[in-house]
Amino acid sequence: MARSSRKDEILQAALSCITEFGVEATTIEMIRDRSGASIGSLYHHFGNKERIIGALYLAGTAEYAALLETGFAQADSAERCIKLLVTSYIDWVVANPDWARFLLHGRGRVEAGELAERLREANHAHAARLHEKLAGYFDQQLFKAMPLDCFTAVIIGPTQDYARNWLAGRSRTPLAECRDLLAKIAWDSVRA
């Protein structure tokens, strides 16, 4: 996360506190102390702890989506697009392990909070962009026939499961070392 603005500094501080103390134990005061922001600045930018949590979640998913978008600009085949979905996810998780842990465990809280509609909109936009990028390959029947709502789970499911175990310290092999293998498995799972 870039430290280019006060808002970013607050989000970075929130992530640091959440990583150290957990979501429930983290308080506005902790975030204020760690960020150096005034209480007025915290409330000006976010309003409350739940909005900070929601903004942190949305910022993480947006950063991953931006990484994916950059890759899509160069991916010129169905295989490269599918593998990109896996490799971008792995690259982001490896570069941002604390943020990734938060995203893996914080979704339900955000879905139940004030920013639930913004999360739904962001997820819808992300899904639409994926569909747009892959539509031509679907039209060419380069993928196995399967329900569209299963397609992404088939691609990212094994990677997300391994990442969850790696982030929890339950896997010995570093996630980055599994990058090519998991990308190949994803492609093999969906190619016609």
Rank of each mutant, 00 (worst) to 15 (best):
Y137F: 14
E69F: 05
P174Q: 04
E177W: 09
H44K: 14
D33L: 04
H44M: 08
I10Q: 06
R179N: 12
G36W: 01
T70A: 08
I185K: 13
H44T: 02
H124I: 07
M1L: 10
F46E: 13
D139P: 05
R107K: 15
T159E: 02
I39H: 11
K133D: 05
R6A: 13
T159S: 14
A168C: 02
R107L: 03
A112K: 12
L175V: 00
W166L: 02
I156D: 06
L182T: 02
V94K: 10
K144H: 13
G169F: 05
I28S: 02
L103I: 05
G71A: 15
A62L: 10
L56V: 05
I156G: 04
T152K: 07
H45D: 07
S38K: 13
M146I: 09
G106T: 01
L84H: 06
E24S: 06
V154H: 06
E20T: 12
R6V: 15
I53C: 00
R172A: 13
A59P: 02
C81R: 08
G108P: 03
H105F: 03
V94D: 12
C178M: 15
T87V: 09
D180W: 04
I82R: 06
S4C: 15
I82H: 03
F21M: 07
R129Q: 12
A176M: 10
L11A: 14
I28G: 00
G71S: 14
E24K: 02
R172F: 10
T87S: 04
G108M: 02
L115W: 00
